[in-house]
Design a protein around this nucleic acid. Structure first.
Lengths: 351, 351
DNA sequence: CCTCCGGATTGAAAGGTTTCACAAACCTGG
DNA sequence: CCAGGTTTGTGAAACCTTTCAATCCGGAGG
């Protein structure tokens, strides 16, 4: 076990040790060192120990590029997320991490921040890196770049979006059902005039939720005129507050007794506005949000909300990706989850 | 520009085209194709066009592993963050992305989720990948793994933590000052008995904030007995609510008129408890939080909070990393930012 | 017409690992 | 003591790109 330079070589180590140096130091061949790395069971305990000692001594760090060049693919998965600052996506990512851990893969997160150019740059870089697979919540689900990547052989799964053609696996949550259970709950509480607070969210997620709301009303024998639209330009807290102002300004005869918000930020803003306007929640106005973000439960009046199985969404997406990796010729699957309602104080039964 | 297989080869393309195939298709040499890729100015417009056409035709995707093997380093930066679900870290990451964009590098995010083993796995994988540099908010800033990585030559910058020895660059925010400005503000509002709500946050961040609080009291001629400790086990919303219960239970003579919380989640929990306990904020209890997360401003009573320059923190960390990459022999720098107070309704002047 | 020059292009080496066919050493049981 | 089998170790080829010294070519200057 002789080592070229046993003294703690200066800060600038001559050159990082490779498998070759380890082999020399341990007095074995290249192939043996490689075996220690990849099939330890094929090498006798004695030599294995020698090799491992040499690796430690030389501070050997395996060169992943070389390995990858040889074997053709890497041990990493990537999730290109739409908005890294939105807790929804980080929760989805947490689910993917669960699966990645099990498979002993690394998950790298890329944040496109809703910028098509940045998304494109990430995708291209990931493809060049020959990552094992890509998970993505795309800025534009219709982008041809997604097809090209899949065609060239990198497995790709679409998350929280769907596309007309079944050219990829995808996982999503049924937004129509989400809207339906939210409003059905309100109807069951005796509400008959319901405000819908929502803006223009990409790809008709808002539209679907509204559609579900209408369906629930219809099931209760109530027409579409029982849904009062309070349209917002964005989907932030401020927009919810704004909608609250407008709602409070309606004549008592046409003012809703309950509101269904297309996401929790809107709902929180609405809640805040109610406090300012001296409207009691849920007595004067019941509120249902969407997403069940952490702060929904922590609001001054804990918020009833439609919960999406975020973590499971991520888990399933990653599992689909694994399937596709294992069998490139498989049938693409479109998995749809059903959301559930979490009832809290903001819709407790009216007195 | 002849191509082996011009018909849209079936879904299973024989084998991905390499630089060699492109060269053949374009009727030029390997080196020329490489030049088109790396020094387009060295090749005549005519041939360049030919080569580019061939690349498009063959759907050439550069093999990053091979490139990297040759040149020795990659074009990616990584941020190993402590908790991907905490908006603080994702904001820091956004700042890093700014810098990475400018340098035309990719930033990959890794979430250690506060798990030392997962962090170790990511670090080791990143080192094997020969990433250009690592940014990290470590689970344990004292971990020797960090030193080893730096010693072996991968630039590494510590984010939002400091360590005793100056063996790395680091960026952090001055928590003592943060505590000081928070409590000074409360003292200026006339409060003389102040509750400190905080748990055991890693590496004495909580300790520093408390230290700053004491300093502010001292500066106002008030002794340490004017700080009432409400210690929590964790730092979540529930813990804040819990602290609120205890606070409300104190005899009027010793009950604080204001509370300084070590983070905004605690503050929001406390706020919520106050509503339930019929304590008016800020009249009966003024509240200052820490971090100024998005929901601080959106709370029912908007929260006064200590804001850290998150994005700038990330930006600066990445810049430091760039410096270290450019000049490996440079002096490590410890950059410290100063937080600022954002005053909102939860501490408006008492009537 | 020859030389020389500079820009464009070429060809081969190098980079670190994995893989695989093969050799060596060892063991088992007859 | 040997045949045959198993376990361990070897060495060279292959993966795809970049780099750089060398070559080629067309034209300017003599």
């Amino acid at each position: 076990m002789t080592v070229q330079d046993p003294h703690e070589a200066g800060p600038a180590d001559a050159r990082a040790a490779g498998i070759k140096d380890v082999a020399a130091a341990a007095g074995v061949s290249l192939g043996t060192v490689s075996n220690v790395l990849n099939r330890p069971d094929r090498v006798s305990p004695g030599t294995r120990a020698k090799v491992e000692a040499a690796m430690a001594e030389l501070r050997f760090v395996r060169n992943e590029s070389a390995r990858q060049l040889r074997v053709g693919h890497s041990r990493v998965l990537a999730y290109v997320m739409l908005d890294g600052r939105n807790p929804f996506f980080t929760d989805v990512a947490a689910g993917m991490e669960d699966t990645a851990d099990e498979e002993d893969l690394s998950l790298f997160l890329c944040n496109s921040a809703n910028l098509a150019t940045r998304e494109a740059a990430y995708l291209s870089r990931l493809e060049q890196q020959r990552v094992q697979g890509i998970l993505i919540t795309p800025v534009d689900p219709g982008s041809p770049q997604l097809d090209e990547i899949a065609r060239r052989g990198t497995p790709l799964v679409i998350v929280d979006r769907t596309r007309p053609t079944a050219s990829h696996c995808s996982v999503a949550v049924d937004d129509v059902v989400g809207g339906e259970i939210a409003v059905r709950h309100l109807v069951e509480q005796g509400h008959e005039r319901i405000g819908f607070v929502g803006g223009l969210l990409g790809v008709g997620q808002v539209r679907d939720r509204r559609e579900g709301a209408l369906r629930a009303l219809r099931a209760a024998g109530l027409g579409p005129d029982h849904l009062v639209d309070l349209t917002t330009s964005q989907m932030g807290v401020a927009d919810g507050g704004n909608a609250g102002q407008r709602l409070a300004g309606l004549p008592a005869s046409s003012r809703p007794t309950a509101a269904f918000c297309a996401n929790d930020l809107l709902a929180l803003g609405l809640l805040q506005a109610c406090a300012a306007l001296r409207l009691r929640v849920p007595d004067d106005l019941a509120i249902v949000g969407y997403d069940d973000i952490e702060f929904a439960a922590a609001a001054t009046v804990p918020l009833t909300s439609v919960r999406q199985p975020r973590r499971r969404l991520g888990r399933t997406a990653a599992e689909l990706l694994m399937q596709e990796t294992a069998d490139p010729g498989h049938e693409h699957q479109q998995v749809t989850f059903t959301p559930e309602l979490v009832v809290r104080a903001s819709t407790y039964p009216r007195a």
